[in-house]
């Protein structure tokens, strides 16, 4: 796992050091985790497309192993984020971001081979960004999250896409962006055995590198 992460980082640093890119980190709390941290790096590969890496860590509050609730342990995510800018004007920006991450859940509350589970999380984010003033932005959108557990038990529908709403207020100073982000909405999966409602509140910081225009509405990683 660590080797994979290092190789991916080196690959992304190498592919294009001149292109616009964004580095960010966030800290938050959610229905599933007492605290959750993320770090990410996103690089433009054309005017419309960007690609990035994302890593997340969480301290479990309420998650699932083999579709049975656990209330302690840890969770790690590592994966790719693909960004597609559907439309952009001076006043607003409309993005579709797709992230696919490998997920590892560790908890000793439910006995499983290997002391944890493996799985994947695919997040489709539709996100509208609006310029409220020169430095303040408002983002609104929806998160369509699909979660699958591949082992120990294979549970292909741990979480099915549901209307989870996302909102954020951001303040930009030079190339730095500070944001407050929220998610909330119903959830379902595994025949009703897993999460029924999801919320998350987080604060984030991101810095644009090689950005040509600081007045652009920024790419926001959810």
């Amino acid at each position: 796992m660590r080797v994979l992460v290092i190789v991916l980082i080196l690959f992304f640093v190498k592919i294009n050091v001149e292109a616009q890119s964004t580095f960010g980190l966030s800290l938050g709390t959610s229905r599933t985790d007492n605290h959750t941290e993320s770090i990410w790096y996103q690089k433009s590969i054309s005017d419309k497309f960007s690609v990035g890496l994302q890593f997340r860590n969480g301290d479990i509050k309420y998650r699932f192993i083999n579709a049975r609730a656990v209330q302690s342990g840890s969770v790690q995510h590592a994966g790719l984020v693909l960004g597609y800018k559907i439309k952009e004007t001076e006043k607003f920006r409309f993005d579709f971001n797709l992230s696919g991450t490998y997920r590892r859940v560790n908890s000793d509350e439910v006995e499983v081979e290997g002391d944890g589970t493996n799985g994947f999380e695919i997040d489709g984010n539709l996100l509208l960004g609006f310029k409220v003033s020169n430095n303040v932005f408002f983002h609104a959108g929806t998160l369509l999250r699909y979660v699958t557990q591949t082992s120990a038990d294979a549970i292909t529908d741990e979480q099915l896409p549901s209307p989870i709403l996302t909102n954020a207020f951001s303040y930009q100073a030079n190339q730095n962006l500070f944001s407050l982000k929220t998610y909330f909405g119903p959830a379902n999966g595994a025949g009703g055995d897993t999460l029924k409602f999801y919320w998350q509140v987080s604060v984030g910081f991101q810095r644009a590198i090689n950005s040509s225009d600081s007045n652009d509405i920024p790419f926001l990683n959810f």
């Binding site: 539709l126 929806t142 209307p163 709403l165 909405g185 119903p186 029924k196």
Partner: peptide, 26 residues
């Protein structure tokens, strides 16, 4: 909670898309 999402015709008279809402227990 839910959302409606879709596209609108050139004259904005018609819209077509998805409707998705869910009544969650919690």
């Amino acid at each position: 909670f839910g959302f409606n999402l879709g596209i609108s015709s050139e004259n904005r008279k018609w819209t077509a898309g998805f409707r998705f809402f869910s009544r969650s227990g919690p």
